[in-house]
Amino acid sequence: MIQKLGAVAALMLSGAHGLTGKRGLCYNNDNPSKDAVFANLYKGMDKVTWAYDWGYPSWGLDSSLEFVPMLWGLPSDNGSGWKAAANAPGVVNVLGFNEPDLTYSASSNIPPEKAAKGWLNYIQPLAGGSVRIGAPNVLWNNVDSSSGGDYDTAQWTEYFLAACTGCHFDFAAIHYYQDCVTPDGQNGAVWFKGNVTDAHEVLDLPIWVTEFECYGDEAQQIAFLEEALPWLDEQDYVERYAYFGTFPEYLINKDGTALSALGQAYATI
């Protein structure tokens, strides 16, 4: 069993310092204009206050949204670009490695000991400064969740923490992907709430759900959000969350010109 992060990694909790609101966006610049055009469709939506793009820079994210840079994986250079992004004016939170516990092509797929060394080199130097540090973004999809490889998520996290001696984290970052309605008819929102609760109990840190989605049609996803979002907003230990994702046929309509019905629901529930 994973020991609580507070006991393993010499963590200092800093509460909600530097937070502007819970609801956020995950986006990229994979669009004709090669910028944050889809995320910027949320400008003026009061409940949506922050965004990240799995890296840096922000690709022109509107200044009304707080940009949160991420060190997606181990840099191939000396990390100077990351250091500049993490110390840029207005940056108050940073995100660590993206799905280092998983092995598929879109994950950073970093063995725990190597991830710990990289963390101490590139992220730990930020501790004690003006930014809050999020632990690696791991999948938290029920017990033994994994896309393959040598470790399930719980094992990866345990080994990483054991190797990351003296590492500092202000919050834990998790991902969740499951059906809106399970094959045997169970409510996916109930499963989701159970997983977020479990992550907090195991990791003993404030939680950011930096990616989550239920698999289903648009009506099923809206029903999921109608139950999940008010619950997330009510949990003091949930600091932030971002539904996947700010792309056409997800939170953006097929033409890429406006929010989809799902996107409108995410902005207003």
Rank of each mutant, 00 (worst) to 15 (best):
I222G: 03
L139V: 12
I222K: 00
K193L: 06
W156N: 04
L232T: 02
A86E: 08
L139Q: 12
N195K: 00
N98P: 06
A84D: 07
G44Y: 10
E234S: 15
Y27I: 01
V94F: 00
T165F: 03
E66M: 14
N253E: 07
N93E: 05
Y151E: 04
E227S: 01
F38I: 06
P206V: 13
V94T: 03
S145Y: 08
W72D: 01
V131D: 11
V48I: 15
L229V: 13
S58M: 05
V143A: 11
A162P: 08
Q3F: 05
A265N: 09
G256D: 09
D30G: 10
A228E: 04
D101K: 10
N78E: 11
F67I: 01
T210G: 06
S105M: 02
I2S: 11
G188Q: 01
D35V: 03
F171K: 03
I110Y: 05
L120V: 07
E218F: 05
Y243V: 02
A199Y: 02
Y241L: 12
V202N: 10
I110L: 11
Q235Y: 01
P100A: 08
A7K: 15
Y243M: 11
L161W: 07
I2A: 14
F224N: 05
S14F: 14
V202A: 11
V68I: 12
Y42V: 03
V190I: 08
L13D: 15
L25E: 00
A39D: 06
I207M: 06
H17I: 05
Y56I: 10
